[in-house]
């Protein structure tokens, strides 16, 4: 087999370029960019779609995330498709309320909040959590994403914990890692499920976690090291034999 040296070099260069370019091309094909217009095109009639797109444009100009607005409109369209009594006006009104809530979340959380944090903040506001609580939570958790704390706060309110109690407990645990907060929420849900009062369950579970995360008890031998690490505490030094 004899391949001219010059041709062999060209062939190898072409093969290398094709191999390197293939993943990016396939990734681009696998993830087409879906615009709000394309997502709404086949789901809403033209007047409703235009009204929703006007809200989307307004949110975009304000620097707010637009995907939650499109999601809300598609939720209304999906429910209507299954026979629910959802009018075009209901869809537009729901999208507008969400845009307003996103704007309020932006004011409360500041310009550093990203799209998921703003969406979680808007959900909290729509669950009747006061904007001041969002501000306090943002101050208490100076680093890290606020998405999970805001979600836990909203979900606690949704399962019956009074808003002020939920706000106090989540702010107290604001420095904990996301896994600890989600475990706390599940524990409260479980307690409520077996008959505990929501406010009591939230307070008792939070008090237990506050003891763990307090510096004085962080290195207690009774606290599992994994929980210490998950609570954001310092790693316990190895025990001497």
């Amino acid at each position: 087999m004899s391949i001219p040296r010059r041709n062999l070099s060209r062939v190898l260069l072409l093969v290398a370029a094709a191999v390197i370019a293939a993943p990016s091309v396939s990734a681009a094909d696998a993830q087409p960019v879906a615009t709000p217009e394309s997502r709404l095109a086949s789901r809403l009639d033209a007047p409703t779609r235009n009204a929703v797109l006007a809200e989307v444009d307004s949110a975009r100009r304000a620097g707010l995330p637009v995907a939650p607005l499109v999601d809300r409109a598609l939720e209304g369209a999906g429910k209507r498709a299954l026979g629910r009594a959802v009018s075009d006006a209901d869809i537009v009104a729901a999208v507008r309320r969400l845009r307003v809530a996103l704007g309020s979340a932006r004011e409360a959380l500041g310009s550093r909040a990203d799209g998921t944090e703003l969406a979680a903040g808007a959900s909290a506001l729509q669950a009747d959590v006061p904007p001041a609580t969002l501000v306090a939570l943002g101050r208490a958790r100076s680093s890290g994403s606020l998405t999970v704390p805001l979600s836990v706060l909203t979900d606690l309110v949704a399962i019956g914990v009074p808003a002020d109690t939920a706000a106090r407990t989540v702010i107290a645990l604001a420095r904990a890692q996301d896994a600890v907060l989600l475990a706390y929420q599940r524990d409260v849900e479980r307690d409520i499920g077996i008959g505990a009062l929501p406010a009591v369950a939230a307070s008792v579970r939070a008090a237990g976690l506050e003891k763990i995360t307090a510096d004085g008890l962080l290195h207690s031998p009774g606290v599992p090291s994994s929980l210490n690490a998950a609570a954001g505490g310092k790693p316990r030094p190895p025990r001497k034999p």
């Binding site: 729901a94 309320r97 969400l98 669950a127 989600l182």
Partner: peptide, 17 residues
């Protein structure tokens, strides 16, 4: 799962984080 707030269309939803 917890219910999602903002039941705009008369049918409750759930939420996952």
């Amino acid at each position: 799962a917890p219910r999602a707030p903002g039941d705009d269309f008369g049918t409750p939803n759930s939420v996952v984080t």
